[in-house]
Design a protein around this nucleic acid. Structure first.
Lengths: 125, 125, 125, 125
DNA sequence: GTGGTCTAGACCACC
DNA sequence: GTGGTCTAGACCACG
């Protein structure tokens, strides 16, 4: 599985990993009941500790995005397109709310905020 | 100065403090060259450690929003309305960019993201 | 034999199997001296490993619910209605005791616990 | 804090710990905003690893029963008596449901199940 | 082979 | 001092 992990990032390794896998699941890039790479294989591929991978997988399992079968591995949960959309929106809401509230307190208008987002969207790679 | 600091919040105390003062400066609520409460006074008012206040003020000074006169205290920097707006936008851009990129990777559209933000704006207290 | 095995369940496959067969035996759905499907047949039917079936049968044999005839297969033990009832109660006691003790430690009353069980009974499919 | 941890138990150490602390919180034995022993102190008291304590505390935090302040420690969340009761019932329901369903499948009646629970209640130490 | 648990030691951010 | 993270090694349950 293609992931971009950076030891230098302030974001913990396990959070980078779970975030990227979560995006693949919610965007439908990983089909339901697909197996994830085993924690040992993933650890070797990404050159990180097995425990870090386990932590990332555990987080995703707690969110209900993957499930585990002892002795078999981790698998993607079945989710409808609608469910995936709701989960994605809920997650975005939780993360973006404090940012928006800070921006409003800082004197920016709703229009100004949306303008900033459009700029980011245009300039993305 | 009126601040809302919560010991329970996951956000560090010094970050809560600098964030709220920053918002007051960038939104024009604090006039240029106004003095900030001394670290000791602020610490007593908010019932927190002087080190925590020091850390918050240091952060704001590093950002160029306040300056210090040795033996006199901290003062708000002179900023034009235009400069304040640019700083506010830059800060918003830095904070919201990873959130937007994650949302896009998660399969949400630009329109979907903006819709989420409008919902937050409508429901804000 | 009709069994419902789920690879997704957190409960091990062999435990699901032994639990369901045990229920059939203790509730009298399987008559004494009836033969169980051979390990190979059962494995093929349920599309699981023979080792998993072996493990389930071994558990039931250890409990004294089935016995094995070398080269012939596994058979249900003779049990009176009274014996079956005692075994069922003993098993329930063992499994429910820690749950009840935890609920009591958590501040729930005996009446509250029974109420919860009545709700589950009413809402069962 | 008085806890009874057993290395011999099949239940993981961190689960024993979180279960017993959870019971103290939900039964109201720990007042809101009380601090829990620091992970290092607790580890020393119970003679187990710091990481095991952290795991237990993390679980409770995820459940919303305690909150953490970096550099300060872990504290009990504010909960009304009503909220505690609902949480206790929800937890009991989740744990006891499969047990009840298995007992019913095994041929026990609702009355028989309740009788077993009354026996446990009478015989508890 | 798989994941689950417990253990240890180290470094960092925060107060 | 506090908790948060990453690392390593070991043993057990499961298939």
């Amino acid at each position: 599985m293609l992931l971009h992990l950076s030891q230098k990032s302030a974001e913990p390794l396990h959070a980078q990993m779970s975030r990227q896998i979560r995006a693949k699941i919610l965007s439908g890039k990983l089909a339901e009941d697909d197996p994830l790479p085993s924690i040992r294989v993933m650890a070797k591929q990404q050159k990180i500790s097995v425990l870090t991978v386990q932590r990332a997988y555990d987080d995703l399992e707690r969110e209900g995005l993957i499930y585990t079968k002892r002795g078999k591995g981790f698998y993607i949960c079945s989710l409808t397109t609608q469910q995936r959309k709701v989960l994605a929106r809920d997650r975005l809401t939780g993360k973006i709310k404090p940012v928006i509230e800070d921006a409003l307190a800082t004197g920016l208008s709703l229009g100004g905020i949306i303008e900033v987002i459009r700029q980011i969207f245009k300039g993305r790679k």
